[in-house]
Amino acid sequence: MVIPVTPITKMHTENKGIPLGILWQSLADRIKSSDFDKLMETARRDMGPKLTVALVRELIAQGYDAQVLEGVVRPANSPDRIDYSRLPTTDPVLHIYLNEVGMYSARFSMDYVPRVNLSAYLLRPSNEDEIYSETIYYGADSNGNTSSSIPADARHHWSSFNEMYEHPEQVSQSYDVAIDALAAKIAANIRAQTAPPPRAAVTVH
């Protein structure tokens, strides 16, 4: 069962190319980040539902009988602090936290690239026993293509904040690509880490 993913509360942009100690530039960067968050509000709100759907699709592709868990009770001030014992199921549940979403420009690069970091937990509601847990980094914080890391799609980079700001549809598409890649990675990792080992062949003489 997949617990519906809640959207992150705010997107951030970060430009490591800004020299340290220059206050006005730091302030300008924060203003840009706020402007970017407002521009991408629809994409931010849609990210949780889109990731939920993608997770169900990818888990089914891996052979699981997956579906969205309805009726999840959430605290209003902290929607991801769920009392698992109150969930309307005894089946294992997949709970995804979006940790950080935005755009990042590295210190030695002029380009902005997507950043989507999340944590995934597959657990039994009755005792909160973890079956699988992992933090996965997409894009800016990735370190090659590994079980916990996915490089950003090479098409998705912008040479300046203004260029990125002027192409919101392309930026939204980059997040859609990230969601699909992350869902596929999580489903494949769950299959790899929870599938029973192959049975040894027995030769009868």
Results as ranks from 00 to 15, higher is better:
A187L: 05
P198M: 01
A184I: 13
V202C: 00
S160M: 06
A188H: 09
S160F: 05
Y175H: 11
P196R: 10
A178R: 03
A178D: 04
D176N: 13
R191S: 15
E166K: 11
A187W: 01
A200C: 02
Q193F: 15
D153H: 10
V202Q: 10
Q170W: 08
I179E: 01
V204F: 10
N162G: 14
E163G: 09
D180Q: 14
P151I: 04
Q193E: 15
L182M: 06
L182G: 04
V171D: 00
S148W: 13
E169K: 05
A187N: 06
P196I: 09
N162W: 05
S160W: 03
V202F: 07
P168Y: 04
Q173P: 01
F161T: 03
W158G: 00
R155S: 15
A154L: 14
S174Q: 05
V204R: 15
A201L: 11
E166V: 01
E166L: 11
I179P: 00
D180G: 09
E163N: 08
V204E: 12
Q173K: 08
S172C: 08
R155Q: 13
M164D: 08
S172Q: 10
E166W: 13
A192Y: 13
F161H: 07
A195E: 11
D180A: 15
R199S: 15
W158D: 04
P197F: 09
V177L: 11
H205A: 15
F161I: 03
R191V: 12
R191P: 02
N162Q: 14
W158A: 05
A183S: 07
A188S: 10
E169S: 12
P196E: 11
S172N: 14
P196K: 07
A195N: 07
A184M: 09
A183D: 01
M164E: 03
A195C: 08
P198H: 13
I190T: 06
H157Y: 08
A178I: 09
P151V: 02
D176L: 03
E166F: 14
V177Q: 08
N189V: 07
A178N: 00
A195L: 12
Y175A: 12
Q170A: 09
A195H: 10
R155F: 08
L182D: 04
S159P: 07
F161N: 01
A178T: 03
N189P: 14
Q173T: 09
H156P: 02
P197L: 09
H156L: 05
I150L: 14
S172E: 15
R155G: 13
A184Y: 05
Y175M: 12
P151F: 06
K185T: 07
A152Q: 09
D176C: 02
S174L: 04
A184R: 13
I190R: 01
S172Y: 05
P196D: 11
S159R: 11
S149G: 14
P151W: 00
E163K: 14
A200G: 13
R191C: 06
Y165H: 14
V204D: 10
V177S: 03
K185I: 02
A183L: 02
I150T: 01
I190Q: 02
A178Q: 01
H156K: 03
